[in-house]
Amino acid sequence: MIEIRWHARGGQGAVTASKILASSAIREGKYAQSAPDYGAERAGAPLRSFNRVSEEPITLHCLVLHPDIVVVVDPTLLKTVPILEGTDENAILVVNTDKSPAQLREYLGVEGRKIYTVNASQIAMEELKKPLMNIPMLGALVKVIEDLVSLESVEEDIKATFGKKITQELLNANLKALDRAYREVKGE
């Protein structure tokens, strides 16, 4: 079982990204959960969302305490919320930042853990013209964790989730943002 914790601000779409991830995994025949930590979901307020993905049925119904992966959607949260809480040396960080993984490691003063970075804000602004970093971060996450879900499943789910609600143009922009982050994410 892989456990993931998302850090974002309300309005950045992290809850949706977390749902798409779970949905894509279930689409692939896996077992998955997506559980937002509701309560502070007002636009701009820091929020968390959780995922569990497994080959076996999941019975846990509680917050993720020891995430295998931490996804930081908003770089301004790096120092304001305890993003490393509950992680061990083997944890993986996927962070939206213009820094390289090495720069970020130094900036955070982190030892151990694998760090991946992607400039999701830039991708979002270029492709979506809005600071919606959720989809790019999902793209990066999919790349980083190979066995989680395939990029194709996520694309399918994005089409199913957004398909009828947004224009084709915006849908394509989302898919492009997903794909760019998938390709542009860098590890140490």
């Binding site: 749902k19 779970a22 949905s23 279930i26 077992y31 998955a32 959960q33 997506s34 559980a35 937002p36 509701y38 049925p57 999941i58 119904h61 509680c62």
Partner: peptide, 12 residues
């Protein structure tokens, strides 16, 4: 069903 924990969480 438990509010949010089940009502708002995606599962299989």
């Amino acid at each position: 069903m438990d509010g949010f924990i089940i009502s708002h969480s995606i599962e299989n």
